[in-house]
Every structure is written in structure tokens, then in C-alpha cells.
Nucleic acid binder design. Structure first.
Lengths: 285, 285
DNA sequence: CGGGACGTTGACTCAAATCAATAACCGTGG
DNA sequence: CCACGGTTATTGATTTGAGTCAACGTCCCG
């Protein structure tokens, strides 16, 4: 317990240089961090004793650069981040978007440097846990150990959802899946699951989905003309959640031996092909 | 310390029912588990005191079913596993292959049930850590806590590499990237990085790469005809590692503002198109 | 006002999905 | 032993969806 406080003090001192004078911890503690992650808080009193650093990152600013030494991990307190890596040719591959409660930099725990870059898509803030403290805090504050495990695990689930996105054949299906994912994550953050503002541009979306940005545009208008969503620039409203979800379930040719009818997506896109205007769509009713 | 042994005993008792009578722990301990993960072993003596369960899984057998309650996590001790999920239409989406040292089921830590299925591609064995023990062991055996963090982190890195695979435009590039990844992982396991036996079929590979299985076949013959590899069914030999790596770096249209020359892949595929036989290839020499 | 970033839409091309046929392999059982 | 069905892998023919190139409109900021 004594130990705990010492540790925390040291943490603060060590990190101040890191934050580049940007953020001072306004009295936030480990308890706040735990609450943001949604993990069960064991000993709230103990957790409230351990101060935690925060850092503000303005829109477009970088939180970590690719290849920079892995000195800390972060927990998103507010805002949105994009995680990406830039290959030798300058192509920027987006790996995920992170919302409130998610951990950033977990993938660096098994290496010396960050394999990915992270930048803020809007004004955001994070909790900072220095790498050296990760180990100690795990031992001293059991709830933190658990929160880290859960957050890391969630990160993995997200990453695998991402594979599900890119696995879809049709570009419209990829977009539909993304929108549903985002909708659920927004809901989880207490925001409206039916109407939201996209924090990223078409180009970034295209990278995430693994298609050309022109295709993203076309897919948006396609989904809108089916009557599933309504779009205006980055403003999105889901008009037919069930329909969108059904459409998002379209898959690539099913495994042999299972003789289901043709995939929904293709049927729908084919049936829509002849139509001229955004006709109302009856979906596998 | 005393506590440690009690915990372990309990673990053994609780798990015996789970293992379906398949595996008895042949005296393996936490020390063995730590060594397999490659994590630094702190107190070897302590770790050697903590028995750990193992479980054998025969080729084709299932380790966990999708949606089954998340009762344990696993560390691959030997063999190969595939991690996948089956969607409503019966299409089997492969998420990753796991080799020795990697953790399985980490994604279930943040939920009540496994979001993915896991089956063995060959006769394999795993260490079993019950979910309830994960928390306690993390507190009692610091080295385990660290090993779990590292293994989870590695899992995330793998999952993101997977995104890198599917992000590539050309199917031959995807396959090339996969082969290089696998080569490096094989090397990490102490096996030859130039010559290996694929544990998975074309269909499974196709699912992982996000293409049709016919395309995987064609990509294999393409890479072989470039002279980069040699293939015979599931036996693969990399003949030109540098060339393969250069080819694997081909990307989608680079981000605007960076005016690099056309992507390597397209050029190569174009220049190869005219050739009839597996000519020797000079790559960006 | 002009330059730049962003988004949409159209036209064209081509790579990969799909459909189909064949070959090789394997375990089973006559 | 071979015949058989089932699975897997390869290759060919055809179609189509998405990448690419290009033009255009909008918005914002200097």
C-alpha cells in the first residue's frame, strides 16, 4: 500500500517529460481508469489512491509514431483514434479505430518499439501507463491487472472483427458490417446507435475496408438507395437496422455441403440493379 | 507461496472433468509453460512448483467450439491450430493459425463465451489454464502475469499481420506475404524457414487470405513460375527469399502526394505475363 | 480569389469470382 | 487386390465487380 503510493509518485515524475508539457494530471486516479474500461473495480478505495497521468491529443495530432520506443500504453478516456501503419511505398493501412475505454499500444508489450502509429481523429485524451509501471501495477493493484487483460482481450476481438470486415466479398457488405460494428460500439459508449457522425474520411474508411475510396463513396450511395441508411457527408443515419444487419450477413460462397440459397447480398444487389430510384426494399421478409 | 500450491492443487482437481479424460498432466509445471511462451522466467524455482494441466488434441479434433463457455485459456505446446468462426450461411472464416508458444482463447477473457472456434490441424497439445486461475496466478506468479501479457500482445500483433495479408490487392501478393510470415514463425519455432509442410488445405488458406480457393491454386503456380518458390501439394520451398519479400511489399495505390513508381507487383506480373516457363527473375536489382 | 482537401460520379479495364471439368489421392469395403 | 465414393488440388472458360483514371462540385482556409 505504501509501496503503491511510491510507485505512483515515481510514475508521475518519470512521465512528465514524456507528455511534452501537454497534459497535467488533473487529479485523476486509477479508479477513473478502471471505470472507463468498464472492468469490475475491486478495491475502489485503493484504486482511488493511485494517481494516473493523462494526456490530451488534439485532432490530427500523433499519440505514438510507428517504430517509436514502447514506453507506455494508453487507455482512451475521450475521443477517437486511428491505429495504422505506413508501408515502404507510403500506403497507409488503417488497422482499427479506437473509442473510449479501449487500450492503445497493447501490441507493443511484446516488443521494444511500437509496431503501429496512433493519431487522434478529434480532440481526445488518454490515460498514460508507463511500461515499467504496467508490471508493478499489475502486482500491486489487482483490478488493474484484470482491466488490462480485459482491455487487451477486447483489442484482440476488435482486430478479429476487422478481419470479418475485410473477408466480405462485396464492398457494400463491408461497409454495412462496418456501420453495424460502429453502431454497436457507439451504443456501448452511451451514444445513439442509429445516428452518428463519422470521425474519419472516406479515404481512411477505404483503407480500413480494403477497397478504393471511390468504392466507399459508391457503397454509401448504394446502401442509401436501398433505403438502409441515409448519408450526408460524414453524417450517417441507419434507417433500417434489421435490413442492414441481414444485408451485412451476406457471405462469400458458403462451404460445400451446406446447400443454402444464394447469398442475400448478391440477390439484393441484382434485384436492385434494375431500379432507378431509392425504392423501398423488402428484405427476406 | 503456500497459497500457490493450494491454488495449483485446486486447479488440477477442477480441470480433470474438463479434459474429458484425455490428458493427464505428466508432471509439467508453470516453468514449462513459461519457457514455451518465450517470456523471461523470473523465479524459476517458484514456477517449477506450480503444476499445470495439459491436453492432447488429435488432428481434426476441436479444442473449443464457437460459443462455448469461456472456461479456460490455452498455450500451444506443440502442433498447429486454426482459429475460425462459422457464420450463419455456413461459411468458415479463418482468423489465424496458431503455432507453438502462442496463446489460444485470449479473446474470450473479456466475455463469457468463446467468440471463436479452435481445432487442431495436426496432433497437438496445449497447456490449460482455467479462467478462474488466470486471475489468481497473475497475482501469485508474477512471471505468469507477464507471460500472459506478452502472449496476448503477440496474439494482437498476429491478428494485425492478418489484416496486412488481406489488405494486399493482388492475390499472389497475399500468398507471398503469408508464406513469409509463416517462414518467420517457423524459424522462430526452430524449424527451417525455407522449406516446410503446410498444415492447412487450399480451402483454409483461401479463407485466411480472403480469396477463392481456385485463386490460391493459381497464385501458387504463379509464384512458382516466377521462380520464387517451389510447390508440390502442401510441400513448399522458398527458392528466392529476397525476391519473395520484395514482391510481398507490393501495395495498393500509394497515398496521394507520394509519387513512387508503379507498384512492384503489377509490373512484375505484367512482365511475367508473356513468359512461358519459370524463367529466372531479376527483381528490382 | 485561388489552392487544396474532400467527396461524388462516370467510363474503361482487368483481376478475381464463379462455374465446370479433370486428375490425384485416400480410406473403406467388397 | 481393385472398385468405389469422397475429398482435395489444378486448370480452363466466362462474367462481373472493383480498381483505376478522370472530371467535377463543394467546402474551407490562407
Amino acid at each position: 500500500m505504501n509501496n503503491t503510493l511510491q510507485l505512483a509518485e515515481q510514475s508521475v515524475r518519470t512521465t512528465l517529460g514524456q507528455t511534452q508539457g501537454q497534459g497535467r494530471s488533473p487529479g485523476l486516479t486509477m479508479l477513473d481508469l478502471l471505470q472507463v474500461t468498464g472492468a469490475p473495480v475491486g478495491d475502489a478505495h485503493q484504486a482511488a489512491q493511485v494517481p494516473v497521468l493523462t494526456r490530451r491529443v488534439h485532432a490530427g495530432e500523433s499519440l505514438v509514431h510507428e517504430g517509436s520506443p514502447a514506453e507506455a500504453i494508453f487507455f482512451v478516456c475521450a475521443g477517437t483514434f486511428k491505429v495504422f501503419c505506413t508501408d515502404v511505398n507510403g500506403y497507409e493501412q488503417i488497422l482499427s479505430f479506437a473509442l473510449r475505454g479501449e487500450v492503445l499500444g497493447f501490441d507493443a508489450l511484446c516488443m521494444e518499439s511500437h509496431p503501429t502509429a496512433i493519431t487522434a481523429l478529434e480532440d481526445s485524451s488518454v490515460f498514460v501507463v508507463l511500461r515499467n509501471d504496467v508490471f508493478h501495477l499489475s502486482q500491486v493493484v489487482p483490478a488493474f491487472s484484470q482491466a488490462l487483460q480485459r482491455a487487451g482481450s477486447l483489442s484482440l476481438v476488435r482486430s478479429r472483427d476487422q478481419v470479418g470486415l475485410m473477408a466480405a466479398v462485396a464492398s457494400e457488405v463491408r461497409l454495412a458490417r462496418f456501420l453495424i460494428q460502429l453502431s454497436q460500439r457507439m451504443a456501448h459508449c452511451g451514444q445513439s446507435p442509429r445516428r452518428f457522425h463519422l470521425r474519419m474520411g472516406r479515404r481512411e474508411l477505404a483503407s480500413l475496408l480494403g477497397v478504393a475510396h471511390e468504392t466507399v463513396s459508391r457503397s454509401f450511395t448504394a446502401l442509401a438507395s436501398w433505403g438502409l441508411i441515409e448519408v450526408s457527408d460524414r453524417e450517417v443515419e441507419i434507417r433500417d437496422m434489421d435490413g442492414l444487419q441481414a444485408f451485412a450477413r451476406s457471405t462469400r460462397r458458403p462451404a460445400e455441403g451446406i446447400h443454402a440459397e444464394r447469398s442475400v447480398g448478391k440477390v439484393m444487389r441484382r434485384s436492385m440493379a434494375g431500379r432507378r430510384q431509392g425504392a423501398v426494399l423488402r428484405l427476406a421478409a
